[in-house]
């Protein structure tokens, strides 16, 4: 049986991708940002997911204003990096998992989430930047990735509650997939930022920190944040944080926060990042056979990411 083991959120600021591509990651400005993801990469290397479901938004790359799907699930075998005006990013082609993706599509549609199925799509920085932050810059991405594109460009995006419930439906779908797969769900975008109009540059760290807290402890409270409140308090483009709630809905109610990072700014945006693990299944019979090195992982989970970092040095 496939199982969602953890959820990760991360900003997907395009300038982070540019800093990687132009080899500026050691510059002080960027080092401040990238250093926050060192432990995350170790965590990810340890977690070894078979599949990442990456919730992100397209930025006028694959979808223009001709077609604006609210939820679009990538069911293709691969997704090439999009040319966003400077040539495609020098990152590996994203390999999908068509079998699991179409299983999810079928399951959630029958659960009344009428998503769009995409069999051909290029993916932009919204997806590839978080992959870089979690996996570094390997010659090939180490696992399959199922893109889930959410419209947050044209108002209104789906509500936070709808996103959360879609996450629930995705969890149900994954849990009913027969193959043993370890799945990590990523929510991308945010945190507070406004990049349009005279109010551009807005950042509200207080909102962001409360959002990170709520994500761990009380995500249902976050589903009550209205669109206007998001835009007013966290910036017009900060509204994309609704995508994080898909990730959170896909996790168990109780999760363990193993890592968090927050910094201001990356270009125009507050960067926020959190790693939440599902707790291990309580009974042995429910534990999937695919849980490799369960005891070690359990220990790491109990001590948080610091334990992971220490262990990796041994």
């Amino acid at each position: 049986m496939a199982r969602i083991i953890a959820g990760v959120t991360s900003s997907h600021v395009p300038a982070i991708g540019a800093a990687i591509d132009l080899k500026k990651t050691e510059e002080p400005y960027w080092k401040r940002v990238f250093s926050g993801f060192e432990k995350s990469k170790e965590w990810m290397a340890n977690a070894k997911p078979d599949v990442v479901i990456a919730v992100y938004n397209d930025h006028a790359s694959a979808f223009s204003v001709e077609l604006i799907p609210t939820f679009a699930l990538g069911c293709a075998a691969e997704f090439p990096p999009a040319d966003e005006g400077w040539g495609p990013r020098p990152v590996p082609v994203v390999k999908g998992h068509p079998e699991l993706a179409s299983h999810i599509a079928q399951s959630v549609i029958l659960d009344e989430f009428d998503l769009t199925i995409v069999n051909k799509m290029e993916v932009d920085h919204g997806l590839t930047v978080p992959l870089n932050l979690m996996f570094g810059s390997p010659p090939e991405w180490p696992c399959r990735v199922i893109p889930l594109a959410v419209n947050v460009v044209m108002y209104p995006p789906p509500t936070g509650h709808r996103c959360y419930m879609l996450g629930r439906a995705i969890r149900k779908a994954v849990n009913s997939y027969p193959e043993d797969l370890r799945v990590v769900v990523m929510g991308t975008g945010g945190m507070s930022h406004q990049i349009s109009g005279p109010r551009a540059g807005l950042i509200k760290s207080k909102f962001d920190k409360a959002y990170l807290d709520g994500l761990t402890k009380d995500p249902k409270e976050l589903t009550r944040i209205s669109h206007v409140e998001f835009m007013r308090e966290a910036g017009a483009e900060g509204i994309e944080m609704v995508m994080w709630l898909i990730m959170r809905g896909a996790l168990d109610d109780k999760v363990k926060e193993v890592y968090r990072f927050y910094t201001v700014p990356a270009s125009n945006t507050a960067v926020g990042h959190i790693i939440l693990e599902n707790l291990e299944p309580k009974t042995k019979s429910r534990r999937p056979a695919s849980l490799r090195g369960g005891a070690t992982r359990k220990r790491a989970a109990a001590h948080g990411i610091r334990q992971v970092a220490v262990r990796s040095k041994q």
């Binding site: 044209m154 005279p198 109010r199 835009m231 017009a236």
Partner: peptide, 15 residues
């Protein structure tokens, strides 16, 4: 949302 200063929300009408 038109009450939010310095912000043009890209809604259905603007789209």
């Amino acid at each position: 949302y038109d009450d939010i200063p310095g912000t043009f929300v890209f809604d259905a009408d603007r789209s």
